Amino acid sequence: MAKTIKEIAEELGVSKQAVFKKIKQVPLSTEIEKFISTVDGKKLVSVDGENLIKQAFQRKQKTANVNVDAKDDGKDDGKMFTVGSNAGNTVDGIPFASQERENTLVATFQTAIDALTSQLEAKDQQLAAKDRQLEEKDKQLERQTKTIEELATSLAVAQHTAQAAQALHAGTIQRQIEDVPIIQAEELKVVKETAEKIMPEYEKRRSIFSRIFGGR
């Protein structure tokens, strides 16, 4: 199964940079080229390529171990001591990312990531609270606007009713004023008709009295 450079580096206990530098050196660079492919922007190394990389690092490690043994036997010439003293910690001049150091770095990064995540969550909660406050204010404003509209409608209806009542009252008074002459004329007509009915009877009685008492 193909592996990434990072996965191979973790298995070897070295950094990715050390693996990249190793596979760029001859003869490994020419041997491993056909075993490396790029998928979704990631370099994948086949099993055969992985074995070549590990063999290259094993050869390097063996050389480093020989240098360390030479130092322990007191047979190093000073120069070998200089190389061998760091041989267990470096590969081609690049420091080893030991498992302990890598774990420490991972823990540090994870702590930083957790802290940033907590800050983002807190910010999200603050933004959500502000959104809820804005929604509540919008609802309050909507209710106030609706109340104002209802009051304005009620006021308009009241004004219209008052105007109609005033007009009706004024019209009633006007009609009463206009009807006075008509009423008076009708009353005079009734009086006249009544008088016309009464006068002949009165004249008739007056004539009878005149004849009886000799008055003419």
Rank of each mutant, 00 (worst) to 15 (best):
H169L: 09
V68G: 01
D179W: 03
Q55H: 08
V45D: 01
D73L: 15
D124G: 08
L52I: 02
I5D: 01
K71H: 03
T194K: 09
I36K: 15
I177W: 06
A56V: 07
N51I: 15
E50V: 14
E50H: 13
Q133K: 14
E7H: 07
E186V: 05
K137Q: 11
A70D: 06
A64L: 08
N67E: 09
D69K: 11
A165R: 07
G49S: 04
T104P: 00
L168H: 12
V19H: 00
V91E: 02
Q144C: 06
A2M: 07
V91P: 00
Q144M: 10
A64M: 10
T108G: 04
Q119K: 11
G49E: 02
L155D: 03
G214I: 12
E196W: 13
G41V: 01
V39E: 09
I183Q: 13
T4G: 02
Q140D: 06
K192M: 08
V68R: 04
R143A: 03
F96R: 07
R132Q: 08
G214V: 12
S46N: 04
A128Y: 09
T104R: 14
M1C: 05
T4M: 03
D73F: 14
R211M: 04
F213E: 12
F35A: 01
Q184E: 07
I173D: 04
S46E: 05
V19D: 00
D40Q: 13
Q58S: 10
T104L: 12
K139L: 05
D179H: 07
A165L: 12
E142V: 06
E121I: 13
T161W: 01
V180Q: 07
Q174G: 00
E178F: 08
Q166E: 11
E135V: 10
E102G: 01
E203L: 02
G171W: 01
E50Y: 10
A164N: 09
V47Y: 07
T117I: 08
D124F: 09
L141N: 13
L188G: 00
G88S: 07
L127H: 04
S46I: 05
F35V: 02
G13H: 04
Q17G: 03
A158P: 00
E11F: 01
D138Q: 14
N67T: 13
D77S: 08
F57C: 06
L151H: 14
F109Q: 12
P95H: 06
R205P: 00
A18K: 03
E142M: 06
K146T: 11
I8H: 03
